[in-house]
Structure formats: C-alpha cells, structure tokens
Design a protein around this nucleic acid. Structure first.
Length: 571
DNA sequence: CCCCCCCC
C-alpha cells in the first residue's frame, strides 16, 4: 500500500506516532472539506512536515479524488471515479490544420450525480477497449472542467489526462451498479441524449438497402416498440442490424443506448436510433397494455395510438388480395364500425383479414380492443388498424340511429407521397409514383363499355347486380424522365382528365373525318406536359417492358410549384 | 445515413 509507505516515511523522518499521523490526516481531510483521500492528505502532511516524498509527487497529487457534485467550472487536474452511465457517439472532424480530430463522450455517474466526460483525439481509443461499457468503473486523472455546449459542466480529457478502466485502487462498494432506467416512449425528446426503453415489439421492417448521398451503401432495419405510453420506431444501421436478428414480433425487450433524433420525414416526430453500444435484452414478460376505452366514435378523430371502442359494423368489404409495392400479395379486409356519433373505417391485413372476414358480417356488434388509430393521408381521416395485440369480439349491441359514413368526399387533391421512382430503376411490379413529361402524340383512343360497379368490361363483369354501362376510354402515352421512359395508360376518368374531354363526346367524332384533327388538337395539349402519375406497374410480355396504368395523375405546373413554395414560406 | 406498414 502506498499509504503505508508514506506513513513509514513520515515516522522515519519526524518520529511522529502512527496515531498522531492518523489525526493529522483527519484534520487535513476536514480542512479540505473531504476533497482529499487519505493518500492525498498524507502527501500534503508530508510536504508540510518537510518529509521528502520524491518521485511520487505528480501521482499523489492525482490522488485527490473528488465527487461529481464537487466539480466546479475551470477546475484542473481533476481526479474522479465513477461508473459509465451512458456512451455517446464518437465523431471525427477536420482540424484547422487539416488533420483529422476525434471527439467522443460518455456520462459518468457517482453517488452525487452525473457528468459528461469529453475525450479528444487519441483518448477516444478507450472506446475500443472491450471493458468500456455501461456500468464499468472508470478513473479519470487530470481532467479539466469546462463549460459544456448546452450549459452544465463537462470534464475534458485531453493530451495530459488519463483514463483508467476498471482501476484496482478503488473501493467498488462506494460505486454501486447503476440500475437501468427506462424512459417512457411518450416522454422521449430530442434533448435526452442516450436513453433506454423497454416494450413490446409490434413490428419489424425488412432490411432496406440504400445508397447514401455520398455514394456509400448502407442498410437499415427498424423495430416498432410499444410501451404503456405509446410506440416508437428504432432504426438499426449496418452491422448493428445483427442485434435484431433474434428478435421477433411480440417479444418484450429492453434496449439501451438509443439516440433520439428528429425525423426528417415526419415533422415533429422523434425516432430512436440504435448505436454500436445498443444492447437488446429479451425479457420473460407477458405484458398487457391497458388502452384507453373510447365511448364515442366521433372522438376517435382526435385521438392517436392504441385504443378500444365498440360499435356496429355498418359496411364490410369482401376480403381482397392486394399487391404491395414490394410485390408481396396480401389480404386486406376493410369495414366500417358505427355508433350514433360517427363511423370509422377499420382495416385488417394478411391472415387477420382472412380470419376476420369469416366471422364478421354487416350488422354485428363488435368490441375492438387495443386497436391502433392512425391518420390516413388518403381519406384525410383517422382509421383503425387491427394490430398484433388487437382483438375483435362480437357483442350484443343495439344502437338506434347509427351513423353510416358517406363515402369520404374530402380526399386530398394532391395525395402524392412525393416518393417518386426513376423510371429506369423500375424492376418489379407494384405501386409507383412517377414524374415526367408526356413525349408522344396521341395516335388513337380506344373505348369500351364498363360496369359502373366493378369498372370491368361488361363481358368480364361478375357483379351479382351489374351496374350501369359506362362508356370508358383508354389512352396510351409515353412518360419520360431523365432516366428513361415508360408506357403509361390512362383509363376512364383519368383519361378524360388528361385529354380534357368526355368519352361520350370523343366517341361521337371517332368515326368521322374530323377524328384525326381532334387527335392532333388533343395531342398538342398533351405533349410536353409535366405530370406526376400514381399507379400500378406491370410487366408487359409483348412489349418486353414495364408499363404503368395511371390511377391518378396531376399536372406539375410552375404556378403550383410557386404556390407550394409560398405556402412553405408563410408557414 | 433508410422511410411514413400495407390498399384505394
């Protein structure tokens, strides 16, 4: 023991007794308000008594241990011991002399508080040490207390400082392990720094690969986690994706070292990002969240998240197969649930759609538990999704004068997501949004009679009660963007909107000599038009190319662009 | 750094 050596040296040089030295140590510690350790006090006493403690000066000076709450601005040569509470990201930067600099930070905890420790340049190498993880004891030598960027004091570890991981000369009992604290999802905000959460995995996205703006390839995968307060999305990047491998939907997990970050997609939304320090721990827990029970369906428009409510099925679709953008074909069941205040659309997907389509029918009273409310951009209303925890029970329910929802009229004019695909990158069927210019003349317009119910050709209509015959026209074009071109077909209303004339009118001219003239005239207003198209893309074996059928399109006019920009500026 | 589970 070093203290022993110093006591012996003092006894040797001064003839003081061990007890006398002991009381001098106590006095010195008292005098220095407990800022000094036994060794430090002995050093000072030795110096005062003129005892030579050669060679060890610097080391002894360093032994004056502080508590985090003692740290004051501009203190130098700080010695501090604590446990790593949080680890923040490591960053590199360009110094003014052109060299690459590094900065990293972690949070240190002792019984008196937390403090941010900032490491510079070579000092960040400690991040690579396998012992550098949460809850490890760390000793800091020669740190300097500086003003943090966001207020508060930080300790900076520079060239003359030292960090000792798992030091041996520390009483570990003084530093009990930090218990992990989980943040409630609805309390997460951008300023929290690194956090831990726990909750149930509600969804797990497929791994998406992408090319970053700087040309590098990246991949990302995200988990949706729900706790008693809400749900959030956690993104895992590149190698960290491996951590999600053993995680299944429905698992109850905790996640550590997550960074909250503002979504640059949805305004006001905070997403969580996993870091290389993130650990996922599966918990053996079965958790039932108590979702709020909502009495009146009309108030569902002002809520979000998971809720329960009841009502009567006032409309139900046949289960239908839809093709996702990804090419996957899944089942979708849509139905409306009403009470006397309002109606709301409910959707069930995949197996849930098939399953529910067998048991639910129009007029049934239903109790929907733990379903998810989400805003639908298309209908501009909240809709209900049957989620993994959701249940739908049939109940005896009589409601007089239920509200049957009218077909929604307030569809957004511009319901494009803005997620446009470059034409030459299309390599699969699915739903796409394209942006481009119409490049060819209108050579012909085809017509057929369609059932007004199913919109299919009368011959192919399988409606029980066939609707009215509706004259429908088809026009065919090419859409070009900078990357390539694609055949684009417009049917029915979309075609009428594009050419600016009704099918009934055009069909009357079709067999007259004026038809060619009409096509020319229509062409002149179509060629060169900048439009965005939304629709289903399919591969045409005959033309050996992908083609799109426009389900919706919109002109891109300079005026609209301007208007949007003005709107952006004004808001 | 990725995109708004999924459909009109």
């Amino acid at each position: 023991m070093k203290t022993e050596a110093y006591i012996n040296k003092i006894i040797e040089d001064t003839g003081l007794s061990k007890t006398e030295i002991q009381s001098l140590v106590e006095e010195k510690k008292e005098e220095l308000k407990g800022l000094i350790s036994d060794e430090g006090a002995l050093f000072v006493i030795a110096k005062e008594l003129g005892v030579e403690v050669s060679g060890e000066n610097q080391e002894l000076l360093n032994e004056i241990e502080l508590n985090i709450s003692d740290i004051a601005l501009n203190m130098k040569n700080i010695v501090l011991v604590g446990r790593i509470k949080d680890i923040f990201n490591l960053n590199s930067f360009k110094k003014s002399n052109g060299e690459v600099g590094y900065v990293g930070a972690f949070k240190l905890h002792d019984n008196t508080g937390d403090i941010r420790i900032v490491l510079w340049d070579d000092q960040v190498n400690v991040f690579k040490d396998e012992r550098f993880e949460k809850n490890e004891i760390v000793k800091i030598l020669n740190g300097n207390a500086k003003q943090g960027r966001y207020g508060g004091i930080e300790i900076h570890i520079g060239r003359f400082s030292k960090i000792v991981l798992a030091p041996e000369d520390v009483d570990y009992k003084k530093y009990p392990k930090i218990k992990e604290e989980f943040k409630l999802i609805n309390e997460i905000n951008e300023n929290l720094g690194s956090i831990s959460i726990e909750g149930k995995v509600m969804n797990r996205s497929p791994v998406r690969e992408f090319t970053r703006k700087d040309g590098q390839n990246g991949k990302v995968c995200s988990l949706t986690v729900r706790d008693s307060s809400g749900k959030t999305r956690i993104s895992f990047w590149n190698d960290d994706i491996d951590k999600t491998e053993k995680i299944d939907i429905g698992d109850f997990i905790s996640l550590s070292s997550l960074n909250p970050r503002k979504s640059n997609f949805i305004e006001g939304q905070i997403d969580l990002h996993a870091t290389s320090w993130t650990q996922i721990t599966k918990k053996d827990k079965v958790v039932k969240f108590n979702s709020q029970v909502i009495d009146n369906i009309d108030t569902l428009q002002n809520q979000k998240g998971y809720i329960s409510f009841q009502g009567i099925i006032s409309a139900i679709d046949d289960v239908k197969k839809i093709t996702l953008k990804s090419g996957e074909e899944i089942s979708l069941l849509g139905f409306n649930v009403s009470d006397k205040t309002d109606a709301i659309r409910v959707t069930a997907w995949r197996e849930r759609a098939d399953e529910l389509s067998k048991s639910l029918k129009n007029g049934d009273g239903v109790l929907l538990k733990d379903v998810e409310l989400r805003y639908n951009n298309y209908s501009q209303k909240n809709e209900v999704t049957v989620a993994i925890d959701s249940s739908i029970e049939k109940i005896d329910l009589k409601i007089e004068n239920i509200k049957i929802s009218k077909p929604s009229t307030n569809f957004k004019q511009n319901n494009f997501s803005g997620n446009f695909t470059d034409i030459n990158t299309i390599q699969s069927s699915g739903f796409f949004e394209l942006k481009g210019v119409i490049s060819n003349e209108l050579k012909n317009i085809r017509f057929y009679e369609a059932c007004s119910e199913c919109r299919k050709k009368i011959d192919n209509c399988t409606c029980e009660k066939a609707g009215d015959k509706k004259l429908t026209m088809i026009t065919s074009h090419f859409l070009e963007d900078e990357s390539g071109r694609i055949r684009a077909t417009f049917i029915g209303e979309a075609a009428e909107k594009l050419v600016g004339e009704k099918a009934e009118l055009i069909v009357k001219v079709k067999d007259t000599p004026d038809y060619e003239k009409l096509l020319k005239k229509l062409s002149s207003s179509i060629i060169g038009r900048d439009i965005m198209i939304k629709g289903r893309v399919k591969f045409n074996d005959y033309s050996d190319a992908y083609e799109i059928v426009a389900s919706n399109f919109q002109d891109i006019s300079v005026n609209d662009d301007l208007e949007n920009r003005i709107k952006e500026i004004m808001t």
